[in-house]
Design a protein around this nucleic acid. Structure first.
Lengths: 246, 246
DNA sequence: ACAAAAGTGTTGCACTTACACCCATGT
DNA sequence: ACATGGGTGTAAGTGCAACACTTTTGT
């Protein structure tokens, strides 16, 4: 930015901007991609469903504000919120996106494993927080429908060339569970043998937990367990098939 | 965002935030990646080099502000600024990034063809605007060094899986020029026959200008001319070689 | 015995890589 | 003639899609 502010500038001279954060937090549950929504307890859009979020405080970075609001508004465990991988999506700045005043919102995305339902009574401005299948969110408050659509597009693309999919899994997981993440987010079917080769051939994507195994569907051979590895990028990418949808 | 603002909220009650835009505008010139910088005419950081940008006005979106500031501060042709492909990079919101007050900055990137040097006397808050090789920018004002580094990383990655490289080229260009863009941004050498096959095999990446040809280095066979096509994504991607740097 | 889920092998096609070669133009 | 840059051909190597097959468990 450049200084069109002269030496004796008064920060209160202009109509102020408010700066908020909004979070699109996803999980994979029962073969469906879910997003964490809250029901608004205040006007405007009182009673409507919205992405969790809120105002950035004067001495807080956007990322800290995002963690604070997430902890306040949803029942997510504090430990999880603290360690969560947050990623900036983009900033929404259209002048009329909030009827009250000029609000610029910095949107974040996060991926979490399947968790117990958040505590029923929300904190802060939220009535309650719920996991909602992304296909059944209906209309959201403000421009949150658009933010959610942008976030979905982004995470779909990120699965192709990053190791982010493990963020949807519990600390120890099977390759079948990891494959289900891809199939759910992309709404496709993947070839199991090829998927497993691809994942195992990428150094640092997953690490075997020696000796550990777990039954998945009640029947069948127990699957070996893996942990997320240190790798972050996926070279070469795991390309999403274009043809056959699920 | 959620409404912690009660009905009778006074927008002036809190310490206000200022919202700015910053632009990392790149071009390829003489085999080097250049970025557009301005010299600050005002405190703070008076006399230092910085990315162009400035305050978002009360009724303006961030993208509109970016175009306005770019036109005001640099001598870039109005037509070009209007049609420019701007892309949000990310938003920088650390509390102390500007010593004057709380400033949240939305950063954009843009790619332009090699242009004549901008008009010498800058407008607005800029002394003057100049194209500077990215390797020789030195220290920049505020956190602009970090913004510039993030922008470089992003455009390098974008060349792999989008058709964005044509934005660096004039309206009609040769495949040699397009290849030079990749080689400059990635600092690598690419195999010419393979590069041309790859580009031509991607539908909508480039379109031949029938019959047109141009001499490039003064010598050699005149090269056929191409225009940017309608495609925006590059499937499969054009992967950056990892080994041999230029 | 059978179903279900994990895991292994193999084959063929598609694509990329690396490099040899030809073409058109200026000096 | 030859240097320079554009453009074509091709053979070896690589990676991946597709699908058949084996293994281990529960009922």
């Amino acid at each position: 930015m450049t200084g069109s502010i002269p030496a004796g500038y008064d920060p209160y001279a202009y109509e102020p901007f408010a700066v908020t954060v909004d979070l699109a937090v996803f999980t994979v549950r029962a073969g469906q991609l879910h997003v964490l929504l809250i029901r608004r307890a205040q006007e405007p859009h009182r009673g409507a469903w919205a992405l969790p979020g809120g105002f950035v405080l004067p001495r807080e970075s956007a990322e800290r504000a995002a963690r604070r609001e997430l902890a306040e508004e949803t029942g997510l465990p504090a430990r999880l919120v603290g360690e969560l991988h947050l990623e900036q999506l983009r900033t929404y700045s259209e002048p009329d996106r909030d009827p009250r005043m000029r609000v610029v919102s910095i949107a974040f995305t996060a991926l979490v494993p399947d968790l117990p339902e958040p505590s029923e009574q929300g904190g802060g401005d939220a009535d309650r927080a719920r996991w909602v299948p992304v296909e059944r969110t209906g209309e959201l408050a403000f421009d949150h429908g658009r933010i959610l659509a942008d976030a979905r597009t982004r995470i779909g693309a990120k699965l192709e060339y990053t190791c982010l999919a493990t963020a949807f899994c519990p600390p120890e997981f099977t390759l079948g569970e990891l494959q289900a993440v891809y199939e759910t987010v992309w709404d496709t079917v993947l070839d199991r043998p090829n998927f497993r080769r691809k994942v195992l051939a990428t150094p640092g994507f997953v690490e075997a937990v020696p000796g550990a195994a777990r039954l998945t569907g009640g029947r069948g051979k127990p699957a070996a367990l893996y942990r997320a590895g240190p790798a972050t990028a996926l070279h070469p990418p795991l390309l999403r098939p274009e043809g056959h949808r699920r």
